[in-house]
Design a protein around this nucleic acid. Sequence first.
RNA 1: GGGGCGGUGGCGAAAUGGUAGACGCAGGAGACUUAAAAUCUCCGGGAUGGUGAGUCCGUGAGGGUUCGAUUCCCUCCCGCCCUACCA
Length: 823
Amino acid sequence: MITRTRYNPKEIEEKWQAQWEAEQLYHAPDDSPKPKFYNLVMLPYPSGDLHIGHWYNFAPADAYGRFIRRHGYNVMQPIGFDAFGLPAENAAISRGVQARTWTLANIETMRRQLRRMGAAWDWEREIISCLPDYYKWTEWLFLQFYKHGLAYRTKAPANWCPSCNTTLANEQVLADGACERCGSQVIRKEIDQWLLKITNYAEELLDFSKIEWPEKTVTMQRNWIGRSEGAEIRFYTEINGQREEIPVFTTRPDTIYGVTFFVLAPEHPMVEKITTPEHQAEVDAYVDQARHMTEIERMSTEKEKTGVFTGGYVTNPVSGEQVPVWIADYVLMGYGSGAIMGVPAHDQRDFEFACKFGIPIREVIRPAGEEPSDADTWTEAKVALGVMVNSGPFDGTPAEEAIATVTRYVEEQGIGKFMVSYRLRDWLISRQRYWGSPIPIVYCPTHGTVPVPEDQLPVILPENVAFKPTGESPLRYEPDFVNTTCPICGGPATRETDTLDTFLCSSWYFLRYADPHNEQQAWSQEAMKRWLPVDQYIGGPEHAVLHLMYARFFIKALRDMGYLDFDEPFTRLYHQGMVLGPDGQKMSKSHGNVVAPDEYVEKYSTDAVRCYLMFMGPFDQGGTFRPDNLEGIWRFLNRFWNLVTESWIDNPTGEETGESKAIERLRNKTIKRVTEDLSSFRFNTALAALMECNNALIKQQNEPVARSKAYRDTLETMIELLAPMAPYITEELWHLTGHTGSVHISEWPTYDEALTRDETFTLVVQVNGKVRERIEVAAGTSEGEIRMMALDNPRVASFIGDATVQKVVYVPERLVNIVVRNE
RNA sequence: GGGGCGGUGGCGAAAUGGUAGACGCAGGAGACUUAAAAUCUCCGGGAUGGUGAGUCCGUGAGGGUUCGAUUCCCUCCCGCCCUACCA
């Protein structure tokens, strides 16, 4: 027996939150006999506020996890915090609070917000990457990479942000050369740094055959790795009577006879040797100028080509011709060999360079059927493949064979070889910052670089540090941290004071969720077997090439070290869209259009906000947050609440029956629609189906059928179907209608395919493709009868008139199209 | 420059070869109310029509394939996102 009540979100949300936690309803036990499903969202940074973007990611992901769980899976849906990183440090500098204190306070706030969201998080598995029980294993992982030769230290040009006083990965520098975090202009600087050899895995990372990922993400990773096939050809010169070779990488060895100049990157070691005294000053000035630019600036295509002649010459090993050597910043030290052969006729960049500096342009490739022309009159390079011309013994080699022929030739002559080059570069992981995982390395005057023994991990990050605007890690000024003893000889030694890129922390956190409290190991083999890989990963497309590639690299490297036995971390991946501010612009503080979800949770309810975000439009497309539209969901939830409670009041026992076939059909159709929609992340149409069902039931609320068992069953089914999206209201209604267990562990409703079909259907009759009549026809009527009905229909007949019927197209249960022609 | 996604009522959208606009917002009219809010009922692409049955037009523009195109193909326009001297 229930009494009439109003939908009171605050009351029921708090009640069920407490109840679920007391029951540990969302804990995924390690010993369940059910099949596992690992449903993962990207762990948030603890900024101290769970913003609308988090909601848009997490709420639908949660609905999906809940949906899967109802199909009998042991769903693991963990949450944690990516807690190292710059904002904490900036807060420490600007407000004088400790980074750790600030971070942990933020985590506390976000935990509250995450709970209120009503997602089925398994809090037992929470991880916080800035706490020693987690970063101990991040350090341990670094040591494994080091021991297996995948971590190395070298002097490397680094992107350096003068404002943040830190190095940045290429990926963290914006296209205009600005720092991703603070927007200041990034410069280049050479310092000793640690890198991981992700390039060892370039080839394997190009294999996406074992994962179901969005095509666009696969494409982005493929482009990022940037594999190109070509040849290395060694040009040579003589300096002080010594033969010196300078290799170039080219994808177009067939253009070798078109080489009219040679370019070195300004940082190329040969620059010093090859420059003649009379060009020294000019070259020095240019090199110096290049150093002050970031790689991003240098790569800007907008910029006009610059460069200077070194005075030196090299010999083309194929043609024997001597060409001048220039230096120019459009040649990058980090790609290929840092030197190129200039072929202005057939490469646009070389063409622009040659035009600017008056270097000859020589045509050596001619597309089939094209007439010879004067290269000096060209306005752009001819980059298409073609027959080799002006190429000595190679003249006449057809387009299809040209590249292979020249490659084979240079191999035979021992002056070059076939080569694959990648755009991908090693991953720079050193950060001259305090708030990150320490790098467990000690520098000993006698033994050099010594890894901290594993039994001495973790190297603890000191908690009280002084920040100085020196550009070096504050750790450098912590004598208790810096000064240590050598693990080998026990003599005085110093610690590495750089910390690890936070992308390292997030490259393995999903492994730790499977075994979060293990004090002996980063993870156990049993935990890996039980939970990994991740079945469904949901997060923003902005991580397509950073996090998602680093994580793939980690899994492959750890597999090769023997710590894992699978190849890919995330089997299926889905990218949600972006929520825009009410003005349709990207949300940002400067625009003043940031939406705070808490405000709407307060005004309406958690369920309303969750459902609104899912109803907004397709999940992968995002959309504009329109506060007015929340009204619609709010009304729906209230109307549903009222319908259920009133129905149970009016008909407490539910024993009466009546003509209810139509209701049964509605129930089955709705189950089918919602099930199919949720399976493919179409939350918007799933909710629309539930609204339609609700509207249909409300229409019949005062009719006898409302007292039927079928009507009540349909309402119960609706509670069950809505539960993944609106967990609180459905749980309350589930109990109000007499159930005892949680709706969230009830079995997902099933439907009878036969009952999803109506007894009649509307037959559309077209004449020449235009709708002319609609006829209600009983299901199962034969095709012959239907054709007859259509042709005999008086309205249809009037449109046919005297014309001759050419053809009658019949689409079962849908339409008849009568094709006629006037004589 | 390259790659991707998108363009449908006043607005968010639905329909992926078969009734265009489901569902929802905003709006209008009415009911209830002393009144307002809430709630409920009805209306709603455009043109045309004794504004009645109906007819014609309509999914960014143009063309094509098809009995039939929002959906597939080609050309173009616009918007957003990613990427960018990678030899």
